[in-house]
Every structure is written in structure tokens, then in C-alpha cells.
Amino acid sequence: MNDTLDVLLRLVGVLVVFLVFPLLVGQTEHKVMAHMQGRLGPMYAGGFHGWAQLVADGVKFAQKEDVVPAEADRRIFQLAPAIALLPYLVVLIAIPVGPDGFVGQALDAGLFFVLAVMGVGVLGSLIAGWASANKFSLLGGLRTAAQLMAYELPMLLTAASVAMAAGTLSLPGIVESYHWWWTPWQIVGGLVFFTAGLAELQRPPFDMPVADSEIIFGAYTEYTGLRFALFLLAEYAGIVVLCALTTVLFLGGWHGPWSDGLGWLWTLVKTAALAFVVIWLRVSYPRLREDQLQKLAWTVLIPLSLAQIALTGVVKVVIS
């Protein structure tokens, strides 16, 4: 009975994180972008600093009519947002927050689990693009698929480099075997991982698949109301997952000063800092063109990640 209760509590905890953190990232994005770009709109609703902007957005989405195009493949069109969103909920289960089992469920091959399930989420925008029966959506879907295939490889390679360094695939195990000199040792891998993750989430500057000024938000063109909000939520949940994963793999998770009692806080602080960087990049970089996207992945990121694996292997052999 105690075990069941334990598992249940952990799952509820993961669900709460899943429901709260993406919204926090969304709210932060509103405010940070407003400050960086001198926007007045998001600073108005509700009075102080526009705190009610996110609530107003939610109400707006809920009020909109849920439209399914006549030519669309109805069931798949309606299923797609769920396929895009749910994998991130599942991934959160395996990400450790603090030491001593402060994790939804410690998995033996946690790293593989996380990367595998994250890859499934892209199926959502792919089939959304196809099922909408809209040429812009189809173009968006095609670009999504091309981008995923280009950036999945460097992401996996750099994750493999960390697994080699730690000698384990379990995420808590990786953080436990972390030393401070890992970050300089794996810094190239970390940058590649973070960049490839951004591309997989289709965040700017890698937002060619949803480029609103040319293909009108790509795969999501035909979506309205709550289904569209679910896609947006998937993007923010993806940011949380990517930043938490980068923290766990490359920045040492809960390690830091006074980490005995406040380990979980370190994980959250590092994750939040990375999420800020994600938002910052959106504001400051122009969108990459499709050929630049592919070129960056195949001629820069993949060679860099292979070099990182070689470096990891050499250092690992030398120190052991």
C-alpha cells in the first residue's frame, strides 16, 4: 500500500510540474520579450506589470471556436495536439531534480528513454501538417521532418558522449558521477546538445517549420482555440524538458554550494537560467533559412559532436 501511495504521489508531483512550469516559462517569455523589445502590450493587462496577460490568453483560447477544415482527416487532425504534448509529460517522469531519489521514477536506461520519447513528440506536428489538408501545413510538416532528421543525430551523439563520461545511462547516476571539470570537458557537447534541442523544439532561430511570415505557422495553420493552445503548451513543456536535460547532463544537476539541503533548488535555478537563454535567443537572432539550417546541422554540429565523443573517449582512457 505504501509503495502504491509513493508511486501515486510521485506521479501527481510530475503532473503538477507539467502543468505549472510550462506556464511559468510562457509568462516569463511574455515579460522578458516585452522588456527586451520595448513592447507595451503584454505589460498592460491586470495592472501591475501586466500579470494577467497569461490568464487573458488562456481565456481567449478557450473562447475561440474549434474548427476542423472540411477536407481534413478529422480524427488524426484532432489527435495530433495530444501526440505532440503527451511525450513531454512522460519524459518529465525520468528527470531527476535532487539527490536521493528526488525523481519521478529512476530508470536504468533513463537517458535513452528520455531521448526516445522526446523524438515521438515530433510525430504530432508531422501528422498535424499532413492532416490539415493545407499546402502551408504540408510544407511546415515537411520542414519539421527534415529538421528532426538533421538534428536528432548530433543530439544523440552528444548525449552518448555524456553517457560515456559517466559510465551509466541512468540520469541520477550521471549527475552523481559529475565533477566540476566535466562542464569544461563536455562544453562543446553541451552547446551542440542545447542547439540541437532548440532546433528539435522549432524555437527561433530554428523556427523555419513554423515561420509565420511565410508559411503562416506551418503545421498549425488550421488549428484554432484550445487545440492550438495545446501545441503552444507542448512548445513550452519542451523548453522545460530541454533545459532540465541540459542541466542534468552538462551542468551537474543538483551540484553546487550548499547542495546537501538545497540540491533541488540548484536544478531549478540552472533550468530557469537556461530557459531564460532560450527566450533571449528568440528575441535576438533572425530566423535561419532552410539550407542554412541543414548546413549548420550536417557540417558543424555533427563533426563537433563526433570530435566531442573522441575527446571524451581519450580523456576517459587516460584518467582510468
Partner: peptide, 23 residues
Amino acid sequence: FIAWVQVLIYVGSVVVLLLFGLM
């Protein structure tokens, strides 16, 4: 381990490639 590799390779990559071809 085999289970997650199955998801990563087949669901995450092979099916995406298939859908890409179909699109």
C-alpha cells in the same frame, strides 16, 4: 534498453522518414 532503442529508432526515426516520404 532494447525497448527504448526500439522506440528511438523505429518510432522516432524510421516512421518519421516514412511520413516524410509520404508527404
